[in-house]
Amino acid sequence: MNAFGYLRRYWQLYALLVFPLLYFIIFKYGPMYGIVIAFKDFNFFQGINGSKWIGLDAFREVFAMGDFYKTLRNTIMLNFLDLLVSFPAPLIVAIMLYELKSAWFKKLSQTILYIPHFISWVIIGGIVYQVFGTQSGMINNIITSLGFEAVPFLTNKADWLVTYLIVGVWQSAGWGTIIYLAALTGINRELFEAADVDGAGRVRKIWSITLPSLKPTIVTLLIISLGNMIAIGFERPYVIGNTAVREYSDVLSTFVYRVGIESGQYTLATVVGLFQAVVGLLFVLGANYASKKLADQSIL
């Protein structure tokens, strides 16, 4: 059957693709025209077409700014530390939940773990200040009541960094766990039964069956995470950060906000966004190539 025959026979299925395609065309590919702002002296009143071409002048201006390199360093540092701390957390939690025998406790644990992902970062920021605040935070109230000095979780750079990572794990681990649990349900149970016959313990079964079965999922998520090394969300560092820890909390997304929104320099903000997109693509391709060569697993 040729392509036209498939289209006529299964037209209902192809019709379901219309709305997803429209979504990507309108909201993903359409805005890509705005990339040309990076090469123009953009004037809000003249519009994109009416603005003057300036070539690579804006790129030279951005790359000459000291704040750009500081925010680039912070972005890579926070993402790298997140990769070390937050990436394995969902995998560990998923394996622990999978090994639980009590069905009701497993469902209760899953629900509790998923909830933080659906909470706004603004609300999470309020929770963070209520829990980790130096003067009125719950933890510091307990510490001072025991006769110890308050810990500056949100004002000391090193303590803030640890707090940032802990909050990130709490917020994201539950959602990542869903993906790994879905992959775990696809493992053939006969493999575990055969391991039981051979006398394998729980740890040996996890090491020899569970982890190898999750290898494709782990590699795919790792490649995606590496592709986001240069990109970072705006809400988390902006809400949790403050002027006392700006040396660490100031990242590319907050830099774009300050330059693009507050200062009205849309051309410079677009340059930074384009830089993030290009470097992120290179990270994805590089990670995919390395994974294909070393582990024979890839997404492309």
Rank of each mutant, 00 (worst) to 15 (best):
A3H: 14
Y6L: 10
Y6T: 08
L7D: 07
R8H: 08
R9I: 06
W11A: 15
Q12S: 15
L13W: 15
L13K: 12
L16C: 09
L16A: 13
L17R: 03
V18Q: 05
F19E: 06
P20C: 04
Y23V: 10
Y23R: 03
I25D: 05
G30I: 01
P31S: 04
P31L: 02
P31Y: 02
V36Q: 11
A38T: 00
F45G: 01
Q46I: 03
G47E: 00
I48D: 04
N49E: 11
N49P: 04
G50R: 01
W53K: 03
G55D: 00
F59D: 00
V62W: 00
F63Q: 00
M65H: 05
M65Q: 09
G66A: 07
K70T: 13
T71Y: 10
L72M: 10
L72W: 06
R73D: 01
R73M: 06
N74G: 04
I76L: 15
M77P: 09
M77I: 15
F80A: 13
L81G: 08
L83M: 12
V85H: 05
P88G: 00
P88T: 01
L91N: 02
V93Y: 07
L97F: 07
Y98Q: 13
S102Y: 12
S102Q: 13
F105S: 14
K106H: 10
K107W: 06
S109W: 08
Q110C: 05
L113M: 10
H117L: 10
F118C: 03
F118D: 03
I123T: 15
I127F: 15
V128G: 12
Y129G: 13
T134V: 15
Q135Y: 15
M138A: 15
M138C: 13
N141M: 15
I142S: 14
I143E: 10
A150K: 13
V151K: 13
F153L: 10
L154Q: 09
L154M: 14
L154C: 11
L154W: 12
T155H: 12
T155N: 14
D159H: 15
T163H: 08
T163Q: 08
L165P: 08
L165C: 11
V167K: 14
G168A: 07
G168D: 09
V169D: 10
W170F: 06
Q171G: 12
A173N: 07
A173I: 10
G174K: 10
G176R: 02
I178M: 03
Y180A: 05
A182Q: 03
L184V: 02
I187P: 06
I206R: 11
W207F: 14
W207Y: 14
S208F: 07
I209C: 06
S213L: 13
L214H: 07
I218N: 04
T220G: 06
L222M: 09
I224S: 12
L226F: 13
P237V: 07
N242H: 03
A244Y: 12
A244C: 03
V245F: 05
V251L: 00
T254L: 08
T254G: 06
F255M: 01
V256H: 01
Y266M: 13
T270A: 00
G273T: 04
G273H: 06
L274P: 02
L274R: 05
A277F: 07
A277T: 11
A277C: 08
L281T: 11
L281A: 13
V284P: 03
L285N: 09
G286K: 04
G286N: 02
G286C: 02
A287G: 07
Y289M: 14
A290I: 11
A290F: 10
S291N: 06
Q297Y: 11
I299C: 03
